[in-house]
Amino acid sequence: MKLNRIAPLGALLVAGALVLAGCASNEAAADNSTDASASASTTLSGTINGIGSSAQGTAQQTWIAGIQSANPSLNINYDPQGSGAGRKSFISGAADFAGSDAALKDEELSGTFAMCAPDTKAIDLPVYISPIAVAYNVDGVDDLKLDAATIAGIFSGKITKWDDAKIAALNEGATLPDDRIIVVHRSDDSGTTQNFTEYLAANAADVWAKEASQTFPYQVGDAAKGTSGVAEAAKNAKNSITYIDESGIGTTGLKPAQLKVGDAFVKISAEGAASVVADSPLVEGREANDLAIQINRTDTQEGAWPLVLVSYLIACQQYQDAEKGALISSYIQYVAGDAAQQAAAQQAGSAPLSAELSAKVVAAAQSIK
């Protein structure tokens, strides 16, 4: 997938008002382009609250700033407590929507949702695509290369030294220290952990002897909460390694390792993450407007980055409070639009939704009542 040119963040504010004016009348929005010379009134007011993915944190800040600038009577609160906390809060009714780096599980969908109208369910709508980095803090090592089996060995505690023969074999000529590897992993129920362990289970099953899980499954290393927590812990620990949404690296000084995909080593990129998502099907057996994606973790096309997360906004198909449903419908349509996606790409380093996926998300969001 070739990404579109990133639009200036300032354009988001104008585009936001225009997209939302269209949302208010529930018109078809498959084409999310806007005319900056057009005029639009601010039509949205009220408050909605979301809890969830810390990986989405920067993107949510960007989206909320844009939509509220265009609609000053609208108030959106988002607390990046983590994907698991977001889903639990949404299910219980403590949040109007959730951000989650993992779609709802079958057992979650089989239950009830406090905010939703009786006999209706929640839907998963993908809004944020980002590569997960295997990021390290090792002096003198600038271009670390790893494959899935070696990553699995490190994070399961089977490989404990930086100069281990398996790491050295992938990094010929590198000066690797004779020091203990400090593994840093998430302490909370995390969609990033779910995606990371899915990748290892799919590509290194002979080493990673655990099923994919939102809770880190091995008793190894140090634990920290949220994207910012693991970033800070790895930053402050010499000879550390962690897995983290790429947006969380920021100015920490952590370096992303190259990943062996097929026979080639690949540098982390939003384009590589987006191409994997484009090649992945929807999960079967879901409601018509549920767009959960079955990520192809073994994708080996040129430049692919299969260690990718797709993060969702989870909402009711029908809310008990119709006014709240209308606000959330409008917000998700806005978030899935090109201007908002490009702004998030600029601020968070994410991959904008493809035109095809964006149109599907907008259409699904329009069905929310």
Rank of each mutant, 00 (worst) to 15 (best):
L353P: 06
A340D: 04
P281E: 02
A336G: 04
Y243F: 15
A345C: 06
Y243G: 05
K360E: 13
S280D: 07
D245K: 08
S330P: 06
A348E: 08
D321M: 11
Q317P: 06
S275W: 00
G221K: 00
G303K: 07
I332S: 10
S358C: 06
K267L: 00
E356F: 11
G253Y: 05
R297S: 06
S329M: 05
S330F: 00
S228C: 01
V276A: 02
A336C: 10
V335D: 07
L254H: 12
D299W: 15
Q317L: 11
Q317T: 14
G226A: 04
S358L: 09
A224P: 07
G226E: 03
Y334L: 03
G285D: 13
A340W: 12
A231E: 03
L307D: 07
V308N: 10
S269F: 07
E271G: 10
A231D: 00
A223M: 02
T252E: 04
T251V: 00
D321T: 06
A288L: 08
E271H: 12
D279V: 06
W305Y: 10
A237H: 06
K235V: 09
G349A: 08
L291H: 15
V266I: 14
K260L: 00
K225W: 02
L254S: 12
A315S: 08
S350A: 08
Y331D: 07
T242G: 05
E246K: 06
G250T: 07
V277F: 05
A264Y: 01
